[in-house]
Design a protein around this nucleic acid. Structure first.
Lengths: 234, 234
DNA sequence: TTTTGCCATCTTGTATGCAATTCGAGGAAT
DNA sequence: ATTCCTCGAATTGCATACAAGATGGCAAAA
Protein backbone atom coordinates (compact mmCIF):
# COMPACT_ATOMS: atom_id res chain seq x y z
CA UNK A 1 0.00 0.00 0.00
CA UNK A 2 1.76 3.11 -1.25
CA UNK A 3 1.51 6.34 0.62
CA UNK A 4 -0.68 8.87 -1.13
CA UNK A 5 1.92 11.59 -1.55
CA UNK A 6 3.66 14.12 0.60
CA UNK A 7 0.41 14.46 2.48
CA UNK A 8 1.49 15.22 6.01
CA UNK A 9 -1.53 14.03 7.94
CA UNK A 10 -5.17 14.11 6.90
CA UNK A 11 -6.59 15.17 3.58
CA UNK A 12 -5.08 17.84 1.40
CA UNK A 13 -7.34 20.42 2.99
CA UNK A 14 -5.54 19.91 6.26
CA UNK A 15 -2.26 20.38 4.47
CA UNK A 16 -3.43 23.74 3.20
CA UNK A 17 -4.57 24.55 6.71
CA UNK A 18 -1.16 23.71 8.12
CA UNK A 19 0.67 25.74 5.50
CA UNK A 20 -1.41 28.83 6.12
CA UNK A 21 -1.25 28.46 9.87
CA UNK A 22 2.48 28.12 9.81
CA UNK A 23 2.81 31.15 7.55
CA UNK A 24 0.68 33.19 9.89
CA UNK A 25 2.51 32.11 13.01
CA UNK A 26 5.85 32.88 11.40
CA UNK A 27 4.43 36.30 10.59
CA UNK A 28 5.13 35.72 6.94
CA UNK A 29 1.49 36.68 6.64
CA UNK A 30 0.93 39.56 9.01
CA UNK A 31 -2.39 40.56 10.57
CA UNK A 32 -4.66 42.18 8.05
CA UNK A 33 -3.19 40.44 5.00
CA UNK A 34 -5.78 39.52 2.43
CA UNK A 35 -6.17 35.81 1.76
CA UNK A 36 -7.78 35.42 -1.68
CA UNK A 37 -8.99 31.95 -2.36
CA UNK A 38 -7.73 31.53 -5.88
CA UNK A 39 -4.25 32.97 -5.53
CA UNK A 40 -3.66 30.68 -2.57
CA UNK A 41 -5.12 27.70 -4.38
CA UNK A 42 -3.12 28.46 -7.47
CA UNK A 43 0.10 28.73 -5.54
CA UNK A 44 -0.55 25.55 -3.59
CA UNK A 45 -1.86 23.58 -6.51
CA UNK A 46 -5.33 22.93 -5.14
CA UNK A 47 -8.76 24.22 -5.99
CA UNK A 48 -10.59 26.97 -4.20
CA UNK A 49 -12.75 24.37 -2.50
CA UNK A 50 -9.89 23.15 -0.38
CA UNK A 51 -8.58 26.60 0.36
CA UNK A 52 -12.05 27.57 1.47
CA UNK A 53 -12.22 24.65 3.87
CA UNK A 54 -8.85 25.58 5.33
CA UNK A 55 -9.95 29.18 5.75
CA UNK A 56 -13.10 28.12 7.55
CA UNK A 57 -11.01 26.06 9.93
CA UNK A 58 -8.63 28.93 10.53
CA UNK A 59 -11.50 31.29 11.16
CA UNK A 60 -12.86 28.91 13.77
CA UNK A 61 -9.48 29.01 15.44
CA UNK A 62 -9.56 32.78 15.41
CA UNK A 63 -6.52 33.17 13.21
CA UNK A 64 -8.46 34.38 10.21
CA UNK A 65 -11.33 36.78 9.88
CA UNK A 66 -13.98 35.80 7.34
CA UNK A 67 -15.96 38.77 6.07
CA UNK A 68 -19.00 37.69 4.06
CA UNK A 69 -18.63 38.47 0.38
CA UNK A 70 -15.43 40.30 1.11
CA UNK A 71 -12.96 37.54 1.54
CA UNK A 72 -10.67 36.37 4.29
CA UNK A 73 -7.80 38.12 5.98
CA UNK A 74 -5.41 37.32 8.77
CA UNK A 75 -7.17 38.28 11.99
CA UNK A 76 -6.44 41.58 13.65
CA UNK A 77 -7.55 41.12 17.25
CA UNK A 78 -8.09 44.30 19.20
CA UNK A 79 -5.89 45.16 22.13
CA UNK A 80 -8.72 44.43 24.51
CA UNK A 81 -9.23 41.02 22.98
CA UNK A 82 -5.54 40.59 23.55
CA UNK A 83 -5.76 41.32 27.26
CA UNK A 84 -8.78 39.08 27.63
CA UNK A 85 -7.02 36.38 25.73
CA UNK A 86 -4.16 36.36 28.17
CA UNK A 87 -6.63 36.20 31.04
CA UNK A 88 -8.13 33.10 29.48
CA UNK A 89 -4.72 31.64 28.83
CA UNK A 90 -3.88 32.15 32.46
CA UNK A 91 -6.92 30.22 33.62
CA UNK A 92 -6.17 27.32 31.31
CA UNK A 93 -2.44 27.17 31.79
CA UNK A 94 -2.92 27.18 35.52
CA UNK A 95 -4.90 23.99 35.01
CA UNK A 96 -2.09 22.63 32.88
CA UNK A 97 0.43 23.31 35.62
CA UNK A 98 -1.78 21.85 38.32
CA UNK A 99 -2.35 18.74 36.26
CA UNK A 100 1.30 18.20 35.48
CA UNK A 101 2.95 19.19 38.73
CA UNK A 102 4.93 16.31 40.16
CA UNK A 103 3.60 13.95 37.52
CA UNK A 104 6.03 14.38 34.66
CA UNK A 105 7.65 11.20 33.45
CA UNK A 106 11.36 10.97 32.78
CA UNK A 107 10.65 10.96 29.06
CA UNK A 108 8.50 14.05 29.21
CA UNK A 109 11.13 15.89 31.20
CA UNK A 110 13.70 15.02 28.57
CA UNK A 111 11.44 16.26 25.81
CA UNK A 112 10.92 19.56 27.58
CA UNK A 113 14.60 19.97 28.37
CA UNK A 114 15.45 19.33 24.75
CA UNK A 115 12.93 21.90 23.71
CA UNK A 116 14.36 24.51 26.05
CA UNK A 117 17.80 23.78 24.62
CA UNK A 118 16.41 24.33 21.15
CA UNK A 119 14.94 27.63 22.28
CA UNK A 120 18.31 28.78 23.55
CA UNK A 121 19.96 27.73 20.33
CA UNK A 122 17.47 29.67 18.25
CA UNK A 123 17.54 32.87 20.28
CA UNK A 124 19.29 34.74 17.50
CA UNK A 125 16.65 34.30 14.82
CA UNK A 126 13.40 36.08 15.43
CA UNK A 127 10.72 33.93 13.74
CA UNK A 128 11.86 30.50 14.98
CA UNK A 129 12.40 31.90 18.44
CA UNK A 130 8.82 33.14 18.67
CA UNK A 131 7.46 29.86 17.39
CA UNK A 132 9.51 27.75 19.76
CA UNK A 133 8.49 29.85 22.74
CA UNK A 134 4.87 29.17 21.92
CA UNK A 135 5.48 25.51 21.31
CA UNK A 136 6.80 25.11 24.82
CA UNK A 137 3.39 25.99 26.16
CA UNK A 138 1.54 23.75 23.73
CA UNK A 139 3.96 20.97 24.54
CA UNK A 140 3.05 21.25 28.20
CA UNK A 141 -0.64 21.25 27.36
CA UNK A 142 -0.13 18.16 25.21
CA UNK A 143 1.19 16.29 28.19
CA UNK A 144 -1.99 16.70 30.17
CA UNK A 145 -3.76 14.30 27.82
CA UNK A 146 -6.78 16.55 28.16
CA UNK A 147 -8.17 16.98 24.67
CA UNK A 148 -10.12 20.19 25.14
CA UNK A 149 -7.37 21.74 27.21
CA UNK A 150 -4.84 20.92 24.51
CA UNK A 151 -6.98 22.40 21.79
CA UNK A 152 -7.70 25.61 23.58
CA UNK A 153 -4.15 26.25 24.75
CA UNK A 154 -3.03 25.61 21.21
CA UNK A 155 -5.43 28.15 19.81
CA UNK A 156 -4.69 30.69 22.48
CA UNK A 157 -0.96 30.40 22.00
CA UNK A 158 -1.41 30.79 18.27
CA UNK A 159 -3.54 33.87 18.69
CA UNK A 160 -1.01 35.24 21.11
CA UNK A 161 1.43 35.43 18.24
CA UNK A 162 -0.99 37.69 16.43
CA UNK A 163 -1.38 39.90 19.48
CA UNK A 164 2.37 40.14 19.87
CA UNK A 165 2.79 40.92 16.20
CA UNK A 166 0.29 43.75 16.49
CA UNK A 167 0.97 45.24 19.87
CA UNK A 168 4.21 43.72 21.11
CA UNK A 169 7.32 45.75 21.64
CA UNK A 170 9.75 44.98 18.83
CA UNK A 171 12.65 43.78 20.91
CA UNK A 172 10.94 42.09 23.82
CA UNK A 173 12.07 38.51 24.20
CA UNK A 174 8.44 37.62 24.84
CA UNK A 175 9.01 34.39 26.68
CA UNK A 176 12.24 34.43 28.57
CA UNK A 177 13.78 31.03 28.06
CA UNK A 178 15.09 31.01 31.60
CA UNK A 179 11.54 31.24 32.88
CA UNK A 180 10.64 28.12 30.97
CA UNK A 181 13.51 26.32 32.66
CA UNK A 182 12.47 27.55 36.11
CA UNK A 183 8.91 26.46 35.46
CA UNK A 184 10.06 23.03 34.43
CA UNK A 185 12.12 22.73 37.60
CA UNK A 186 9.15 23.58 39.80
CA UNK A 187 6.95 21.12 37.91
CA UNK A 188 9.44 18.33 38.32
CA UNK A 189 9.77 19.12 42.00
CA UNK A 190 6.01 19.00 42.37
CA UNK A 191 5.89 22.52 43.78
CA UNK A 192 2.46 23.19 42.31
CA UNK A 193 1.79 26.60 43.80
CA UNK A 194 5.19 27.96 42.94
CA UNK A 195 4.87 26.62 39.42
CA UNK A 196 1.46 28.22 39.05
CA UNK A 197 2.77 31.51 40.37
CA UNK A 198 5.62 31.34 37.93
CA UNK A 199 3.28 30.69 35.06
CA UNK A 200 1.11 33.57 36.19
CA UNK A 201 4.08 35.88 36.32
CA UNK A 202 5.27 34.59 32.98
CA UNK A 203 2.01 35.44 31.26
CA UNK A 204 1.38 38.57 33.22
CA UNK A 205 4.68 40.03 32.16
CA UNK A 206 3.57 39.75 28.58
CA UNK A 207 0.44 41.80 29.11
CA UNK A 208 2.00 44.43 31.33
CA UNK A 209 5.40 44.79 29.74
CA UNK A 210 5.48 43.38 26.23
CA UNK A 211 2.11 44.78 25.20
CA UNK A 212 2.09 48.42 24.27
CA UNK A 213 -0.51 50.40 26.17
CA UNK A 214 -2.40 51.68 23.10
CA UNK A 215 -1.59 52.06 19.45
CA UNK A 216 -2.81 51.08 16.06
CA UNK A 217 -5.99 50.49 17.95
CA UNK A 218 -7.73 53.85 17.77
CA UNK A 219 -9.56 54.74 14.63
CA UNK A 220 -8.27 57.23 12.16
CA UNK A 221 -10.10 60.17 13.70
CA UNK A 222 -8.65 59.59 17.13
CA UNK A 223 -5.18 59.20 15.71
CA UNK A 224 -5.45 62.39 13.69
CA UNK A 225 -6.87 64.31 16.61
CA UNK A 226 -3.48 64.42 18.31
CA UNK A 227 -1.74 65.69 15.20
CA UNK A 228 -4.50 68.17 14.52
CA UNK A 229 -4.05 69.77 17.91
CA UNK A 230 -0.30 69.95 17.40
CA UNK A 231 -0.87 71.82 14.15
CA UNK A 232 -3.54 74.05 15.56
CA UNK A 233 -6.23 72.51 13.38
CA UNK A 234 -9.88 72.05 14.35
CA UNK B 1 -33.82 46.84 1.64
CA UNK B 2 -35.44 43.44 1.75
CA UNK B 3 -34.03 40.73 3.95
CA UNK B 4 -32.48 37.91 2.01
CA UNK B 5 -34.74 35.19 3.32
CA UNK B 6 -35.22 33.39 6.57
CA UNK B 7 -31.47 33.53 6.93
CA UNK B 8 -30.93 33.92 10.63
CA UNK B 9 -27.50 35.49 10.67
CA UNK B 10 -24.61 34.86 8.28
CA UNK B 11 -24.61 32.90 5.07
CA UNK B 12 -26.65 29.80 4.47
CA UNK B 13 -23.78 27.62 5.58
CA UNK B 14 -24.10 29.10 9.05
CA UNK B 15 -27.81 28.39 8.94
CA UNK B 16 -27.08 24.73 8.26
CA UNK B 17 -24.57 24.81 11.06
CA UNK B 18 -27.14 26.20 13.48
CA UNK B 19 -29.76 23.67 12.47
CA UNK B 20 -27.44 20.73 12.98
CA UNK B 21 -26.07 22.09 16.22
CA UNK B 22 -29.51 22.61 17.59
CA UNK B 23 -30.58 19.14 16.56
CA UNK B 24 -27.54 17.66 18.27
CA UNK B 25 -28.01 19.66 21.46
CA UNK B 26 -31.67 18.67 21.61
CA UNK B 27 -30.49 15.10 21.24
CA UNK B 28 -32.67 14.71 18.19
CA UNK B 29 -29.42 13.47 16.71
CA UNK B 30 -27.78 11.30 19.30
CA UNK B 31 -24.07 10.56 19.59
CA UNK B 32 -22.92 8.19 16.88
CA UNK B 33 -25.61 9.15 14.37
CA UNK B 34 -24.36 9.20 10.82
CA UNK B 35 -24.49 12.56 9.09
CA UNK B 36 -24.44 11.93 5.32
CA UNK B 37 -23.82 15.03 3.28
CA UNK B 38 -26.47 14.59 0.64
CA UNK B 39 -29.39 13.48 2.77
CA UNK B 40 -28.85 16.51 4.98
CA UNK B 41 -28.44 18.80 2.00
CA UNK B 42 -31.50 17.37 0.36
CA UNK B 43 -33.61 17.82 3.44
CA UNK B 44 -32.38 21.38 4.03
CA UNK B 45 -32.52 22.42 0.40
CA UNK B 46 -28.84 23.17 0.01
CA UNK B 47 -26.00 21.51 -1.81
CA UNK B 48 -23.43 19.19 -0.29
CA UNK B 49 -20.92 22.02 -0.39
CA UNK B 50 -22.70 23.96 2.30
CA UNK B 51 -23.40 20.91 4.41
CA UNK B 52 -19.74 20.08 4.19
CA UNK B 53 -18.77 23.49 5.44
CA UNK B 54 -21.17 23.21 8.35
CA UNK B 55 -19.79 19.79 9.23
CA UNK B 56 -16.25 21.11 9.22
CA UNK B 57 -17.30 23.85 11.61
CA UNK B 58 -19.06 21.38 13.87
CA UNK B 59 -16.06 19.11 13.88
CA UNK B 60 -13.87 22.00 14.96
CA UNK B 61 -16.27 22.56 17.84
CA UNK B 62 -15.99 18.93 18.80
CA UNK B 63 -19.64 18.16 18.21
CA UNK B 64 -19.03 16.07 15.13
CA UNK B 65 -16.42 13.50 14.30
CA UNK B 66 -15.10 13.62 10.73
CA UNK B 67 -13.64 10.32 9.60
CA UNK B 68 -11.75 10.62 6.31
CA UNK B 69 -13.56 8.87 3.48
CA UNK B 70 -16.09 7.55 5.92
CA UNK B 71 -18.28 10.49 6.57
CA UNK B 72 -19.33 12.46 9.59
CA UNK B 73 -21.14 11.38 12.71
CA UNK B 74 -22.24 13.04 15.91
CA UNK B 75 -19.26 12.86 18.25
CA UNK B 76 -19.06 10.16 20.86
CA UNK B 77 -16.59 11.49 23.44
CA UNK B 78 -15.12 8.92 25.75
CA UNK B 79 -15.88 8.98 29.43
CA UNK B 80 -12.38 10.17 30.16
CA UNK B 81 -12.74 13.01 27.71
CA UNK B 82 -15.90 13.80 29.61
CA UNK B 83 -14.11 14.06 32.93
CA UNK B 84 -11.36 16.16 31.44
CA UNK B 85 -13.90 18.36 29.78
CA UNK B 86 -15.51 19.19 33.09
CA UNK B 87 -12.09 19.95 34.53
CA UNK B 88 -11.54 22.44 31.73
CA UNK B 89 -15.00 23.87 32.21
CA UNK B 90 -14.23 24.38 35.83
CA UNK B 91 -11.10 26.36 35.08
CA UNK B 92 -12.90 28.60 32.62
CA UNK B 93 -16.12 29.08 34.52
CA UNK B 94 -14.13 30.04 37.57
CA UNK B 95 -12.74 32.85 35.48
CA UNK B 96 -16.26 33.76 34.42
CA UNK B 97 -17.38 33.97 38.02
CA UNK B 98 -14.35 35.97 39.11
CA UNK B 99 -14.85 38.39 36.26
CA UNK B 100 -18.52 38.90 36.93
CA UNK B 101 -18.65 38.89 40.70
CA UNK B 102 -20.05 42.16 42.01
CA UNK B 103 -20.02 43.66 38.55
CA UNK B 104 -23.38 42.64 37.16
CA UNK B 105 -25.54 45.48 35.92
CA UNK B 106 -29.19 45.73 36.79
CA UNK B 107 -30.07 44.73 33.26
CA UNK B 108 -27.87 41.66 33.33
CA UNK B 109 -29.33 40.58 36.63
CA UNK B 110 -32.80 40.86 35.16
CA UNK B 111 -31.81 38.83 32.15
CA UNK B 112 -30.42 36.09 34.34
CA UNK B 113 -33.42 36.10 36.64
CA UNK B 114 -35.73 35.82 33.68
CA UNK B 115 -33.71 32.92 32.40
CA UNK B 116 -33.91 31.11 35.71
CA UNK B 117 -37.65 31.65 35.69
CA UNK B 118 -37.80 30.12 32.23
CA UNK B 119 -35.80 27.16 33.50
CA UNK B 120 -38.28 26.59 36.28
CA UNK B 121 -41.17 26.84 33.88
CA UNK B 122 -39.66 24.29 31.54
CA UNK B 123 -38.73 21.76 34.21
CA UNK B 124 -41.33 19.31 32.98
CA UNK B 125 -40.05 18.87 29.45
CA UNK B 126 -36.74 17.15 29.11
CA UNK B 127 -35.12 18.62 25.97
CA UNK B 128 -35.83 22.31 26.60
CA UNK B 129 -34.84 21.91 30.20
CA UNK B 130 -31.43 20.55 29.27
CA UNK B 131 -30.88 23.27 26.74
CA UNK B 132 -31.89 26.07 29.09
CA UNK B 133 -29.62 24.77 31.82
CA UNK B 134 -26.69 24.96 29.44
CA UNK B 135 -27.72 28.37 28.19
CA UNK B 136 -27.51 29.77 31.70
CA UNK B 137 -23.81 29.06 31.69
CA UNK B 138 -23.24 30.46 28.21
CA UNK B 139 -25.27 33.52 29.19
CA UNK B 140 -22.91 34.15 32.08
CA UNK B 141 -19.91 33.71 29.82
CA UNK B 142 -21.42 36.15 27.35
CA UNK B 143 -21.53 38.82 30.02
CA UNK B 144 -17.78 38.75 30.54
CA UNK B 145 -17.29 40.35 27.13
CA UNK B 146 -14.26 38.11 26.77
CA UNK B 147 -14.40 36.68 23.28
CA UNK B 148 -12.25 33.60 23.72
CA UNK B 149 -13.82 32.82 27.06
CA UNK B 150 -17.28 33.04 25.53
CA UNK B 151 -16.38 30.78 22.67
CA UNK B 152 -14.78 28.12 24.79
CA UNK B 153 -17.49 28.02 27.42
CA UNK B 154 -20.00 27.76 24.62
CA UNK B 155 -18.23 24.81 23.09
CA UNK B 156 -17.68 23.11 26.38
CA UNK B 157 -21.29 23.47 27.42
CA UNK B 158 -22.37 22.07 24.08
CA UNK B 159 -20.09 19.09 24.39
CA UNK B 160 -21.31 18.56 27.92
CA UNK B 161 -24.70 17.77 26.45
CA UNK B 162 -23.11 14.96 24.48
CA UNK B 163 -21.39 13.63 27.56
CA UNK B 164 -24.61 13.71 29.52
CA UNK B 165 -26.45 12.00 26.70
CA UNK B 166 -23.89 9.22 26.67
CA UNK B 167 -23.05 8.71 30.30
CA UNK B 168 -25.59 10.68 32.29
CA UNK B 169 -28.07 9.10 34.59
CA UNK B 170 -31.49 9.23 32.94
CA UNK B 171 -33.36 11.13 35.64
CA UNK B 172 -30.67 13.39 37.01
CA UNK B 173 -31.73 17.01 36.84
CA UNK B 174 -28.22 17.83 35.71
CA UNK B 175 -28.20 21.46 36.68
CA UNK B 176 -30.41 22.11 39.66
CA UNK B 177 -32.19 25.35 38.96
CA UNK B 178 -31.91 26.36 42.58
CA UNK B 179 -28.15 26.26 42.29
CA UNK B 180 -28.31 28.70 39.45
CA UNK B 181 -30.32 31.05 41.63
CA UNK B 182 -27.88 30.71 44.51
CA UNK B 183 -24.98 31.37 42.21
CA UNK B 184 -26.65 34.49 40.87
CA UNK B 185 -27.24 35.72 44.42
CA UNK B 186 -23.59 35.32 45.33
CA UNK B 187 -22.51 37.05 42.14
CA UNK B 188 -24.78 39.99 42.78
CA UNK B 189 -23.52 40.23 46.35
CA UNK B 190 -19.96 40.20 45.08
CA UNK B 191 -19.05 37.19 47.21
CA UNK B 192 -16.51 35.96 44.69
CA UNK B 193 -15.09 33.04 46.60
CA UNK B 194 -18.46 31.68 47.60
CA UNK B 195 -19.67 32.02 44.05
CA UNK B 196 -16.62 30.21 42.74
CA UNK B 197 -17.08 27.47 45.29
CA UNK B 198 -20.71 27.13 44.29
CA UNK B 199 -19.78 26.88 40.65
CA UNK B 200 -17.17 24.30 41.50
CA UNK B 201 -19.68 22.26 43.44
CA UNK B 202 -22.22 22.69 40.69
CA UNK B 203 -19.91 21.23 38.07
CA UNK B 204 -18.34 18.71 40.34
CA UNK B 205 -21.70 17.23 41.17
CA UNK B 206 -22.18 16.46 37.52
CA UNK B 207 -19.01 14.45 37.24
CA UNK B 208 -19.38 12.58 40.51
CA UNK B 209 -23.11 12.05 40.60
CA UNK B 210 -24.67 12.47 37.18
CA UNK B 211 -21.95 10.63 35.29
CA UNK B 212 -22.12 6.88 35.45
CA UNK B 213 -18.86 5.33 36.61
CA UNK B 214 -18.33 3.14 33.56
CA UNK B 215 -20.54 1.78 30.85
CA UNK B 216 -20.90 1.68 27.14
CA UNK B 217 -17.28 2.63 27.30
CA UNK B 218 -15.57 -0.74 27.47
CA UNK B 219 -15.05 -2.63 24.29
CA UNK B 220 -16.93 -5.75 23.40
CA UNK B 221 -14.38 -8.12 24.84
CA UNK B 222 -14.45 -6.53 28.25
CA UNK B 223 -18.21 -6.53 28.30
CA UNK B 224 -18.47 -10.18 27.34
CA UNK B 225 -15.80 -11.15 29.84
CA UNK B 226 -18.24 -10.66 32.71
CA UNK B 227 -20.91 -12.81 31.09
CA UNK B 228 -18.39 -15.44 30.09
CA UNK B 229 -17.30 -15.91 33.67
CA UNK B 230 -20.92 -16.17 34.79
CA UNK B 231 -21.45 -18.97 32.29
CA UNK B 232 -18.18 -20.67 33.09
CA UNK B 233 -16.74 -19.94 29.66
CA UNK B 234 -13.11 -19.24 28.80
C1' DT C 1 -11.33 70.23 -10.35
C1' DT C 2 -14.61 67.66 -7.66
C1' DT C 3 -18.45 64.67 -7.45
C1' DT C 4 -21.70 61.22 -9.03
C1' DG C 5 -23.07 57.29 -11.33
C1' DC C 6 -22.31 53.46 -14.29
C1' DC C 7 -19.87 49.64 -16.15
C1' DA C 8 -15.92 46.23 -16.42
C1' DT C 9 -13.67 43.14 -13.62
C1' DC C 10 -12.41 40.54 -9.95
C1' DT C 11 -13.70 37.72 -5.92
C1' DT C 12 -16.73 35.14 -3.37
C1' DG C 13 -21.05 31.98 -2.92
C1' DT C 14 -23.10 27.83 -4.35
C1' DA C 15 -24.25 23.86 -7.21
C1' DT C 16 -23.00 20.06 -9.80
C1' DG C 17 -20.12 16.55 -12.03
C1' DC C 18 -16.63 13.14 -12.02
C1' DA C 19 -13.03 10.27 -9.77
C1' DA C 20 -11.77 7.58 -5.74
C1' DT C 21 -12.91 5.00 -1.78
C1' DT C 22 -15.69 2.24 1.34
C1' DC C 23 -19.07 -1.25 2.43
C1' DG C 24 -22.06 -4.92 1.80
C1' DA C 25 -24.24 -8.54 -0.91
C1' DG C 26 -23.85 -12.38 -3.21
C1' DG C 27 -21.43 -16.28 -5.24
C1' DA C 28 -17.64 -19.57 -5.79
C1' DA C 29 -14.25 -22.38 -3.74
C1' DT C 30 -12.90 -25.04 0.15
C1' DA D 1 -21.36 -24.21 6.57
C1' DT D 2 -17.55 -21.06 6.25
C1' DT D 3 -14.26 -18.18 4.15
C1' DC D 4 -12.73 -15.37 0.60
C1' DC D 5 -13.31 -12.86 -3.52
C1' DT D 6 -15.50 -9.82 -6.63
C1' DC D 7 -18.62 -6.50 -8.12
C1' DG D 8 -22.00 -2.85 -7.53
C1' DA D 9 -24.26 0.74 -4.92
C1' DA D 10 -23.59 4.47 -2.05
C1' DT D 11 -20.72 8.16 -0.22
C1' DT D 12 -16.94 11.10 0.16
C1' DG D 13 -12.97 14.03 -2.08
C1' DC D 14 -12.09 17.40 -5.12
C1' DA D 15 -12.45 20.39 -9.18
C1' DT D 16 -14.92 23.21 -12.08
C1' DA D 17 -18.80 26.03 -13.78
C1' DC D 18 -21.89 29.50 -13.15
C1' DA D 19 -24.36 33.14 -10.45
C1' DA D 20 -24.14 37.02 -7.44
C1' DG D 21 -22.09 40.51 -4.99
C1' DA D 22 -18.08 43.85 -4.36
C1' DT D 23 -14.40 47.09 -6.18
C1' DG D 24 -12.26 50.45 -8.82
C1' DG D 25 -11.87 53.34 -12.74
C1' DC D 26 -13.73 56.23 -16.25
C1' DA D 27 -16.84 59.38 -17.95
C1' DA D 28 -20.31 62.78 -17.54
C1' DA D 29 -22.25 66.42 -14.84
C1' DA D 30 -21.62 70.23 -11.58
Amino acid sequence: MAKKESDGGGGRAQAVHRVLKRAILDQALSPGSKLPEDSIGERLGVSRTLVREALVRLSQEGLVELRPNKGAMVARPTLEEGRNLFLTRMALERLVVETLSGKLTREQIDTLSAHIAAEEAAMKERAPSIRLAGEFHTLLAQMTNNTSLMRYVNELVARSSLILALYGRPHSSECAVSEHQELLDKLVAGKTDEAAALMAHHLDSVTTRALLPQDGERNIKEVLAAYAVAEGLA
